[in-house]
Design a protein around this nucleic acid. Structure first.
Lengths: 348, 348
DNA sequence: CTGAAAGCGCTAACAA
DNA sequence: TTGTTAGCGCTTTCAG
C-alpha cells in the first residue's frame, strides 16, 4: 500500500502552505480564486482525501451522529421494519450534512446508558438520536455534563427535544375512520401505559369518540403487551359477552393477535368486526384481509430527528423543541368500508 | 463544560510520565504492578476516557466496522426484519471486540461504491461488511488498493471472504420436508438468477428431488421478483393447468403472493397445496395459516461476518475464507404435515 | 522499568 | 492573501 497523500503533499504540489491548502480545500474565504484552483487541482491529481480522525482531533468535530436503539424492546417497534425505515431516514439526514451514522444497540436500559456514556466520553459522536426513552433516563446527566446535543424519537418524560408522531392524532385518525364507517361500539386494544405513545393514543381514542358524541365505554378498553400472543390472550378473555362492531388496535401485531382471537370466537373480519390498526408494515400489507392502518412514516421520524440533531450540533439552538410527523391512514380491507371494496390500497 | 481529562492529567496525578500512563492504561507490559495500579486509580478518579480520534491518529486504528447495505434492494432482504437482525448480530460482534459500528446505506449500486470509497479514504473504518454483492463490484479495486479488509454477506461472484447460508441446503431442507410429507409434484417459485442465492436454491431443489428419485419438471419452476405482487402475478399465470400438490417459495413475501394467487384459483393452503418458504419473519409467523419456513438465522450471519472481519483486521489471515450459517426448518401450518396438527411451532 | 520527545494529519491563530 | 507554527490527545520509539 502506498501511503495516502496528506494535506502537506497537496500543499507542496500546489506550491502553497498547508494552511492555505486547508482553507482552499474547506471552501473557506481569504484565498484567491487562482490559488484555490491550484490547490483543488493538486488534490484531485493526488487523489487526496482528508483523514477524518485528524480533522476531528484538530477541530473537535467527529462528523458522526450516533443512534441509540434499545433493541431488546424490539417488539416496541412493533415490527422490526419500523427500525429499518427509521435508520434509513436518519442515515439520509446524516449523509446530507456530511455526517456518518454510528449505531449503538442496547439489549437493556442499562446497556443503553453504558453505550451512551462510552460514545460520548470517547468523543466518537457529535450528537445522539435516542429512540424510545421510556424511563426517566439515567444517562441524561452524562449528556448534559458533556454538553452533547441529543434528540429523542418518541416523547420523553422529561422536557427535551424530540421528534414523534402526534399520537393523539394517530388513533383519532383511525377511530374516526371507523366512526365514519358507521361504527359506534368500538373496542380499543392498546399497549402498556408506561409508553407515552400508548397514553396518547388512548387520549385520541377518547377524543374521537367524544367529538362524535359517542360515550366512551371503559369495558371496551383493553390492554396488552405489544406482542401477538398477549394481544390474542387479552382479546380472547375480554371480548366474549361484550358488544362491539369494530376494534382499533395500537399496533399491527396486536391487531393480528386480536383477529386470531376474534375468529376463534366466531367473529369474521371485517364483516362482524371491522379492524383498524397502527403501523404500515409488511405484515399489515400482506395479512388476509389486508389491514387498514395508520402509517407513522417512520422514515421521516428518522430523517427529521437527524436534521434537528445537526441543527443543534451546528448551533442553531433557536429551532423548535418538538417536531411532529403527520401520520396517514392507509385504507385496505380490514375496516370493511365501502371504499375498500373498490380497492383503495396505496401504491407502493 | 469542564474540559475532559487527558492522559496528561492522569499521568500528572499518578506522578508518572504520559508514556507510562499509556502503557499502563492499555494493559501493556513493561510497567510495574505498583505503577499500573497508581495510574489506573488516577484515571478512575478523574473519570478519564481516551479520546478515540487521538488514538486513531496515533496508532492508525479507527476501531470502527462499517456496514454497507444497499437498501434500495430492500426487497432483497425479503423483509426488512432481515436487515434489523443482521445489524443486531453484527453490532454484537463489533461490541465484543471494542469496535463501533457505522452504517453506510446506499440506495443504488453506484451510491454503494461511493460510500465505500468515502469511508475507506477518509479512514473512518478499519474494515467493511458488505451485504449482497450482486454485480462484479466496481469498488473492489479501491478496497484492494487501500488494503482495507472486508467480508461479504452473501456469496459474491469474485473470490472473496464471505458469510452466507448454504443456500443449496436451504431449499433442500424445505423441499425435503415436503417430500417427507408425501408430496411428489412440488412447484418452485424462485427469485431472479442474478442473485447467487437464488441460483443455489434452485440447485437445492433439484438435489432434493433427485435424492428422492423424483424427476424434476421444468414447467414447475417459476421465477418472480422478490416482491409479493410479482409472485402473485407469476403464480397466477403459471399455476393453471399444472398439476402440483406443494409449492416451495424462495421467500416469505413470495409465498404470500403465491398463496393469494392459489386461493384465487380455488386452491386451499395447505389442504390442496402445501407451502414451505424461506425467511422466518413476522409475516411468516403471523400469516394465516402460519408459514412453515426455513429460518436463515440472519442474526448469526451478521455476527460471524463481524467476527471474521475483526480477525482479518487484527491480522489472523489464516482463517477460513467462507463461513456457512446453518439454516433451520420451522414447522408451522402451511405445509399441512401431521406434526403441525399437533401445533409444532417453535416457542419464541 | 520509566521519562522525554517526536510525530499521526489537520486546523487555526498569528505574522508577514 | 499567504506562510509559519503551535497544538488537538494519544502512541511509540529511544534514552536513561
Amino acid at each position: 500500500m502506498v501511503r495516502s497523500p496528506t494535506i502537506r503533499d497537496v500543499a507542496k504540489r500546489a506550491n502553497v502552505a498547508v494552511s492555505t491548502a486547508s482553507l482552499a480545500l474547506n471552501g473557506r474565504p481569504h484565498v484567491s480564486h487562482r490559488t484555490r484552483l491550484k490547490v483543488l487541482k493538486a488534490a484531485e491529481e493526488l487523489g487526496y482525501c482528508p483523514h477524518q480522525a485528524a480533522r476531528h482531533l484538530a477541530n473537535g468535530r467527529a462528523q458522526n451522529l450516533g443512534l441509540i436503539a434499545p433493541i431488546s424492546l424490539e417488539h416496541l417497534f412493533s415490527s422490526s421494519g419500523f427500525f429499518a425505515q427509521l435508520i434509513r431516514g436518519l442515515h439520509r439526514a446524516a449523509a446530507e450534512h456530511g455526517y456518518v451514522l454510528s449505531l449503538h444497540i442496547a439489549e437493556s436500559e442499562e446497556e443503553a446508558a453504558a453505550r451512551i456514556r462510552a460514545a460520548v466520553r470517547s468523543r466518537n459522536v457529535d450528537g445522539l438520536v435516542i429512540t424510545n426513552p421510556t424511563v426517566s433516563s439515567p444517562y441524561l446527566s452524562d449528556l448534559k455534563r458533556h454538553q452533547v446535543p441529543f434528540v429523542f424519537i418518541g416523547r420523553p418524560l422529561e422536557e427535551a427535544t424530540y421528534v414523534d408522531n402526534d399520537n393523539v392524532e394517530v388513533s383519532r385518525i383511525g377511530v374516526r375512520h371507523l366512526i365514519q364507517g358507521g361504527h359506534r361500539r368500538i373496542a380499543f386494544l392498546i399497549g402498556p401505559d408506561r409508553f407515552t405513545f400508548c397514553q396518547d393514543r388512548l387520549l385520541g381514542y377518547r377524543s374521537a369518540l367524544d367529538e362524535a358524541g359517542i360515550p366512551c365505554e371503559e369495558s371496551l378498553i383493553w390492554r396488552s403487551e405489544l406482542v401477538e400472543g398477549d394481544a390474542y390472550r387479552v382479546v380472547r378473555g375480554s371480548a366474549p359477552g361484550r358488544r362491539f362492531t369494530a376494534l382499533f388496535a395500537g399496533s399491527d401485531v396486536q391487531a393480528v393477535g386480536a383477529i386470531r382471537a376474534l375468529r376463534e370466537l366466531g367473529q369474521r373480519v371485517p364483516q362482524d368486526v371491522a379492524v383498524v390498526c397502527v403501523n404500515n408494515t409488511e405484515l399489515a400489507q400482506h395479512f388476509v384481509p389486508p389491514l387498514t392502518t395508520v402509517d407513522l412514516h417512520e422514515y421521516w421520524l428518522g430523517y427529521w430527528a437527524g436534521k434537528r440533531l445537526v441543527q443543534k450540533i451546528e448551533g442553531e439552538e433557536e429551532a423548535e423543541y418538538r417536531i411532529l410527523i403527520p401520520a396517514e391512514l392507509i385504507v385496505r380491507e380490514s375496516c370493511g368500508c365501502k371504499f375498500c371494496a373498490k380497492g383503495g390500497d396505496r401504491v407502493r
